[in-house]
């Protein structure tokens, strides 16, 4: 039996680890959060129901990404918007393209990073976001938050350290 599918608890763990990245990945194709969640949930239900018949040659998580991708294609086919979507994805084959793996891995990493950031203290997270999302320099952040530039540097460094610990702790790397 594939790891994560031996029992419901294992499946729950798999679900919690991959649900977020899968929905975000689906959103990148659909630009619709509700549709993305629906496709991912249906994917998990179908995956659980067919778990005894599935022969997985890749990792379970990669397989789920492929299922979601095919779920999106099926959805657009039903909606007869296939032509539009085929511009993005025109391959329903289960074989995963190398760049697709890279994209999927990126979504796993970004979701982990976002979760790691959410675990940071509010002030540290804010400094990190101003630096990375807003593109402010350390000096600008220091002025904006009325703190020393040294404090900004320290908080950015500690934020990276905590993020790395989060990834290690949660087996994300």
């Amino acid at each position: 039996m594939t790891k994560g599918l031996e029992n419901k608890e294992g499946f729950k763990t798999l679900y919690k680890e991959t649900y977020g990245p899968l929905v975000n990945y689906a959103y990148s194709k659909t630009n619709d959060w509700e549709l993305s969640k629906e496709i991912v949930q249906n994917t998990f239900v179908r995956f659980w129901n067919k778990r005894n018949d599935i022969n997985i040659r890749t990792s379970v998580k990669s397989y789920l990404f492929s299922m979601v991708r095919n779920g999106i294609i099926d959805h657009y086919r039903k909606e007869k918007n296939i032509d539009d979507f085929e511009a993005i994805q025109n391959n329903k084959n289960l074989v995963i393209e190398p760049d697709e793996i890279s994209i999927q891995n990126e979504y796993k990493f970004k979701y982990g990073l976002k979760k790691a950031l959410s675990s940071l203290k509010e002030k540290r997270r804010r400094i990190f976001e101003l630096s990375k999302f807003e593109g402010l320099t350390y000096k600008e952040i220091a002025q904006y938050l009325n703190i020393s530039e040294r404090t900004v540097e320290d908080n950015i460094a500690k934020a990276f350290k905590e993020i790395r610990n989060y990834f290690y702790t949660n087996n994300l790397i």
Partner: peptide, 28 residues
């Protein structure tokens, strides 16, 4: 990796997995 991934991170949405699991558990 973190440095590069930070760009566009604002578009990533995180979910309460326990809550999401509760939605699917009944179906399972």
């Amino acid at each position: 990796h973190v440095y590069k991934s930070s760009e566009g991170l604002d578009k990533v949405k995180i979910f309460d997995e326990d809550k999401e699991w509760a939605k699917i558990e009944g179906k399972l």
